[in-house]
Design a protein around this nucleic acid. Structure first.
Lengths: 139, 139
DNA sequence: AGATTATCTGTAGAGTTGTTCACACGTTAA
DNA sequence: TTAACGTGTGAACAACTCTACAGATAATCT
């Protein structure tokens, strides 16, 4: 791929446009491995959904199994409307799924990857902080 | 912040406060396993740092090893100032570390957990992206 | 010394996000 | 049927975030 061109800057100047390069080979190598733009954007969206404490509490609660909106509100301390708004965001990218039973709506995690992300993150902050919730018991 | 006042919930009847409970036992069980508030907040902060496409590209680049600011800018397409701002945010919670060599600053991932989060997320969007990325024409 | 380079920082403005309130919708009980 | 209930939705507003520009800082070179 890369024509193995050495840094063409023997004559003192490295800059062409406004971007200077120190290790052009490395830049080229990393760029070739960089995922597509849409993939990166999707990844950022997923992480963004996990970037709110309320939504994190909701998802941690759902680690134990499905729950209805009002119980999620009681568990997380959010208002029921807030839980509903949060669940709507999570429903979009299929992070959670809803099961209806009468006028109740039971939500559960739709994706094993999100479960793993949560577990990984929890053990991470568990190390840097206090030891709590040692084994999340993958369930 | 969090009221954290457990609804006394007289056994047998649901409280008439704005929070109704459907499965009080489950709520109690999940609440007892819920990590501390600070831990959830830290987790949300970490995920929040991964919720920006530019920062994700920077971190993916750093998966291959340390890089200086200007090469990161060339790799990610961000401005050098933008890279610097992003790296400052990532430096705070020790997601990346800087090594100085003269006037250059070489950054690298500071934490194996972040590496795992990125890998996990990338395989996730790689798998489920089939359905979701199909109709993404322009964002 | 001054000039140049690489990185860092301080804004300000545009854009986005979370929370609350109020009400709408569908379901169940009376 | 009407009323109550659990949930979903839209609007409004504060709070936050991203980006670009300007300037600052520190190391290197002539």
């Amino acid at each position: 791929m890369t024509p193995s061109s050495r840094p063409p800057a023997p004559a003192g100047q490295v800059s062409e446009c406004s971007l200077r390069l120190v290790d052009a080979d490395k830049v080229e190598q990393v760029r070739s491995r960089m995922p597509a733009e849409a993939e990166v954007a999707d990844l950022a969206v997923i992480f963004g959904l996990l970037s709110d404490p309320g939504r994190v509490r909701i998802l941690i609660a759902l680690l134990e199994g499905e729950m209805c909106v009002c119980d999620l509100a009681a568990t997380t301390g959010l208002s029921e409307s807030g839980v509903s708004h949060a669940l709507r965001l999570l429903r979009g990218p299929r992070v959670v799924t809803a099961r209806r039973a009468g006028r109740m709506a039971y939500y559960s995690l739709a994706d094993a990857h999100v479960r793993m992300l949560l577990d990984l993150g929890l053990t991470h902050v568990g190390h840097t902080g206090q030891d709590r919730l040692k084994m999340v018991a993958g369930r």
